[in-house]
Design a protein around this nucleic acid. Sequence first.
DNA 1: GTCTATATTATGATAGAC
DNA 2: GTCTATCATAATATAGAC
Lengths: 221, 221
Amino acid sequence: MTGGQAITSRAGSGGPPRPDRRARRRQETIAEILDIARDVMTAEGVNGLSLAEVARRLGVQPPSLYKYFPSLMAVYDALFAQGQRDVVATMTTAMADADPGLEALIAGLEACGRWSLANRAVAELLFWRPVPNFRPSPESFAASIEMVRLQRGALADAVAVGQLGPGALEEDAVFLVSALIAGVLTQAIANEPELPWGEGRFSPMFPRLMRLLPAAFPLPD
Amino acid sequence: MTGGQAITSRAGSGGPPRPDRRARRRQETIAEILDIARDVMTAEGVNGLSLAEVARRLGVQPPSLYKYFPSLMAVYDALFAQGQRDVVATMTTAMADADPGLEALIAGLEACGRWSLANRAVAELLFWRPVPNFRPSPESFAASIEMVRLQRGALADAVAVGQLGPGALEEDAVFLVSALIAGVLTQAIANEPELPWGEGRFSPMFPRLMRLLPAAFPLPD
DNA sequence: GTCTATATTATGATAGAC
DNA sequence: GTCTATCATAATATAGAC
């Protein structure tokens, strides 16, 4: 199922494929590997990921994968990095479409929740750290700092427009907020892994929790 | 390192050890196996538990363990059941020592949090369900129903004494409450696994979250 | 960039001697 | 209730042919 195109083009032109074409093909294969890896994690658990199973599903022999990733941990790292980028982009878009302040904060967290239930396995990898001996590379980790920055910005906006009190500017405000979304997500993923955001017993609690934010960071009298 | 006592007593009396003595020794070994299993999970992750490693640490050969547990999953189930009993007992005690109602609810949840950070690996097994193909047996699962019952009772008490509004009697109130403790715990375990309850960035948020309960279940006007 | 072959290591589990 | 020996399986990873 692979190589047909490349061989055809090579036979047709008589020359080797253009470098960018080869590079693009390589990127496609990498993307396919990561896609399959996500499927495997969803089916077998985050720890159940194995290069052997990925190779089986891709229809190649395990050693071939080492041309694309130097180790299993490198695959985890790529999944982590891509997932983190993906969730941050999703949150950023959702926040940009909402009024700055509390609405944007809630929209961003809700987008994070929706994404996490739609990408359960990667969300576990990102937020639960279930793989021993796996530490995300510094570059991967950088994106999670961006996530905190996003939330801090929205909290500051909410203070600026008078929706929240000055407590929301404190350093730990973001930890309180992230515990709220983490709680809903953990319960949903652990107890109702098949249900999307908005269904089940836990994610519908999210809007109610968000309505508590003004009480958590009260305006000064 | 074992067997010395039994051989001595057998040699001394000339007869076989009394059945209850043998049974007690067996229970001690089972307890020791579970103890070591907890250590292994703490060190290698919940999924890193293996009978081979337990046997190594216990100083026996792997097949010997099958005299005590029929499979690895049976060990997980025993850990699950014991952990669930343990955390429910801890919560029950903490709640009994507090005023019925909101204080008891908070004391129970706080005890659950303290226990979970002190028993990280088992808490992950209980609340995250990270082991694929592991379903707790019905008996094990029964204790987690008791946990819900405890919380519902405290919520009802809080309504009865006028601390919370009637919303706390609704079926989903316990899901909201459990999302609060789950959020703090998830963040603490994932990001600061070495820190006990009360330290770090997340578990100190718990009292602040509990102070939001009256706003979550407001009294009628 | 794919393959075969292989090294190395590990696992869960069973049979059967003692 | 312990052991040795073994089965069956699986994993990551490397060497080297094509």
